[in-house]
Computed example of a mutant assay.
Amino acid sequence: MTSGWAADLLLGCTVLLGASVQRLAGIGFALVAAPVLVLLLGPAQGVVLSNCAAGAISAVGLAGSWRQVRLTAMLPLVGAAACTVPAGSWVATRLPEPTLLAGLGALVSGAVLLVMSGARVPALRGVRGAFAAGAVSGFMNSSAGVGGPAVSLYAVNAGWTTREFVPNAQFYGVLVNAFSIAAKGVPRLTGPAWLLVAAGITAGAVVGKALADRVPERRARRTVLLLALAGGLTTLGKGLWGL
């Protein structure tokens, strides 16, 4: 749990950065923020806070774009994720902290590298691909807080444009994070920490929306992925050091 104003302030800044990224790109909160939140709060509390904040910022973005959601395409993703979230939660509560840190770092780093490569995976096409991506995403979201990359890879292989992807990713983010929170509960934070988290989400939504009109998509995406890779490798290193 966070202790002291400096740690709470760092927590709020991390949420602000992650929320800005999520509002800008549709995904990315957990990739950028989860490794830092885990280092600040520990694996269990850091992941569930990532779920709470990512779900909240997804809901903010979805409020203005829900009409663009492809429900028929999203139902297999959401249904498969709902089935694997409990398994991810079970794993997260039973592994020792160094193992969880190493696993989270490896998952984030590997997911970022796959997304950066623009990997084309025939198994991630069609309804079967949606079920596969949703199942992997649900497990990763509940256990490590990083469900977005699997959905992003599905979208790449389905040929979705960024404009199509963002509202659907926000819709998915609201539901899969709600499933994860239902399985694990809410994080235990102090009152000031909760206030800073709420302020970070609010400010991040404003900043992300403003940046969306000014920052070229390719540059923004590359910056997000590089930040996420740095965080993933740092978390992996700390986990391996503790083993």
Score class of each variant (00 low, 15 high):
residue 58 S to E: 09
residue 16 L to F: 11
residue 118 G to N: 10
residue 106 A to C: 11
residue 121 V to S: 02
residue 48 V to L: 14
residue 83 C to F: 13
residue 108 V to C: 11
residue 182 A to M: 13
residue 3 S to Y: 14
residue 92 A to T: 00
residue 132 A to R: 00
residue 59 A to L: 15
residue 243 L to R: 10
residue 53 A to E: 08
residue 202 T to Y: 05
residue 59 A to M: 11
residue 134 G to I: 02
residue 197 V to M: 05
residue 50 S to F: 10
residue 57 I to S: 03
residue 103 G to L: 08
residue 14 T to V: 12
residue 236 L to T: 10
residue 55 G to M: 08
residue 6 A to G: 10
residue 2 T to F: 06
residue 97 E to N: 11
residue 44 A to W: 13
residue 158 A to V: 02
residue 126 G to E: 01
residue 232 G to D: 03
residue 38 V to W: 08
residue 73 A to D: 15
residue 154 Y to W: 14
residue 117 S to W: 13
residue 103 G to I: 01
residue 157 N to M: 07
residue 119 A to N: 03
residue 123 A to M: 09
residue 79 G to H: 06
residue 29 F to P: 01
residue 233 L to R: 04
residue 191 G to Q: 12
residue 214 R to D: 00
residue 38 V to D: 05
residue 170 Q to Y: 05
residue 85 V to P: 00
residue 71 L to N: 06
residue 98 P to C: 08
residue 207 V to D: 01
residue 163 R to K: 13
residue 62 L to T: 02
residue 226 L to C: 12
residue 139 F to M: 02
residue 19 A to M: 02
residue 40 L to P: 03
residue 44 A to P: 06
residue 36 V to K: 01
residue 210 A to T: 04
residue 240 L to T: 05
residue 171 F to H: 00
residue 161 T to A: 04
residue 49 L to A: 13
residue 28 G to Q: 07
residue 83 C to W: 06
residue 118 G to L: 10
residue 121 V to K: 01
residue 31 L to I: 04
residue 203 A to W: 10
residue 227 L to D: 03
residue 3 S to D: 15
residue 230 A to P: 05
residue 227 L to F: 13
residue 206 V to Y: 08
residue 225 L to E: 12
residue 185 G to V: 10
residue 76 P to L: 03
residue 158 A to W: 02
residue 96 P to A: 10
residue 130 A to C: 09
residue 6 A to S: 14
residue 169 A to H: 02
residue 32 V to T: 15
residue 150 A to H: 03
residue 119 A to C: 12
residue 104 L to F: 15
residue 240 L to W: 06
residue 137 S to H: 05
residue 212 A to V: 11
residue 4 G to V: 09
residue 175 L to I: 15
residue 10 L to R: 05
residue 124 L to S: 08
residue 14 T to W: 04
residue 33 A to W: 11
residue 219 R to D: 12
residue 62 L to Q: 00
residue 58 S to P: 09
residue 89 S to I: 02
residue 163 R to S: 14
residue 119 A to I: 11
residue 55 G to A: 12
residue 155 A to Q: 07
residue 77 L to W: 05
residue 116 M to R: 14
residue 187 P to L: 02
residue 141 N to P: 00
residue 101 L to T: 01
residue 10 L to C: 09
residue 62 L to E: 00
residue 202 T to P: 00
residue 155 A to E: 01
residue 53 A to D: 06
residue 238 K to F: 13
residue 77 L to S: 09
residue 160 W to P: 00
residue 13 C to K: 01
residue 218 R to V: 09
residue 36 V to S: 13
residue 50 S to M: 12
residue 89 S to R: 07
residue 115 V to E: 04
residue 191 G to S: 13
